[in-house]
Amino acid sequence: MRSAIVGCGEIAKVHAESIAALEGHEIVGFADCQKERAEEFAKQYGGNSYGTLEEMLDKEKMDVLHICTPHYLHVPMAKIALERGIHVYQEKPAALSLGEYRELKQAVQKSKQYLGISYQNRYNDCVQKAKELIESGNAGSILGGRAFVTWERRENYYTCSKWRSNLAMAGGGCLINQAVHTLDLLTELMGKPVGVEAEMKNHHLKGVVEVEDTVEAYITYQTKEGERSGNFYATTSYCEDSTPIIEVVCQHMTLRIEDPELTIIYPDGTKERMEFGNMEEAFGKKYWGNGHKRAIQEFYEAIESEKSCKIELENTDMSNRLMFAIYEASRTGEYVTV
């Protein structure tokens, strides 16, 4: 298949490397508002360079468009590509608001093209093993779950890309930009979210950014055995990027994920540690994870075989809606159904 990438920042390199590592796929173009960045990518990976998405779409024939731009451009660019009959693979978030998200879903349904959201950590071996233990019944019924993200984002992170600090352009901060991946994994393991109460704060960059640096949520999930609670905490006001912790307490075992390690804690207190080191090295920053290649490969295979895949828009719906519900709950101070 023929692919193109719009937005030639840091994450675009991960997409380009992932595509280049797959057999039978070609990158035909790169587009960026700073055309020199697109030119650098084209020199390294092949294809042509453009200063706008529209010019690239007019001049290149492609099967898949990868969207690696700032958040506020995701839906407008996805809609343009879908209308032209092009499949879309985009970075998170799916959209900036629930209303915009509905527009995106309608565009996908109308076009009948594939649209994937880059929840690449779903492909991490430790996550897939934990999910297998839960779905097989070996872990027993789910009793509850929790997740923690404590990362560091200082003022220079926002000043080097000012859209990140702008609420209208970013849609939010800690949750939509960083911790949404961990929220997605908690939801993958726990089940369907029913409702949520939440609070958000900006602790360490008051007056510098418009977006939150800390979020706390109490989530109700519907499991096979009934409703169970999930506790979620994330902050970017920590002193370093520590490994996120995801834990699901079940009847026969507690599953604790600290990628690439899965620890199984049995009721008698004994622990079994399973470390998965057989995935490819991450192309980009360590905290981005190393599941991008697997995610992109499965997305392309789904297109070719006309089958579903786990990061297709419809299969990420629960996590996307839960994220919007957390923002609404924090604004209103009320319990919000998902």
Rank of each mutant, 00 (worst) to 15 (best):
S3R: 06
I5K: 02
V6K: 01
A12H: 00
K13T: 01
S18K: 00
L22C: 14
G24Y: 13
E26G: 11
V28H: 00
V28P: 02
E40Y: 02
F41M: 05
Y45I: 06
E55W: 14
L57P: 02
D63A: 14
T69F: 03
K79W: 11
I80S: 08
V88H: 03
V88N: 04
V88R: 11
E91M: 05
K92A: 06
P93N: 13
A95V: 14
E100R: 09
R102S: 09
L104E: 01
A107V: 08
Q113L: 12
L115P: 02
G116M: 05
N121C: 15
R122L: 09
D125R: 14
C126S: 08
L133P: 01
I134M: 05
E135D: 12
N138Q: 13
G144V: 06
G145H: 02
A147S: 11
E152P: 00
Y157A: 00
M169I: 12
V180S: 06
L183D: 08
L183Q: 07
E188M: 13
G191T: 04
E197R: 06
M200L: 07
H203D: 01
E212Y: 02
Y221M: 15
Q222Y: 15
G230Y: 08
C239P: 07
C239F: 15
E240W: 15
I245V: 07
V249F: 11
H252I: 12
L262V: 08
D268M: 10
K271V: 13
E272I: 01
R273G: 09
R273E: 08
F276C: 07
F283P: 01
K286H: 13
G289D: 04
N290E: 06
K293C: 05
S305P: 14
E306Y: 14
M318E: 11
M318C: 12
M318A: 07
A325Q: 04
R331Q: 13
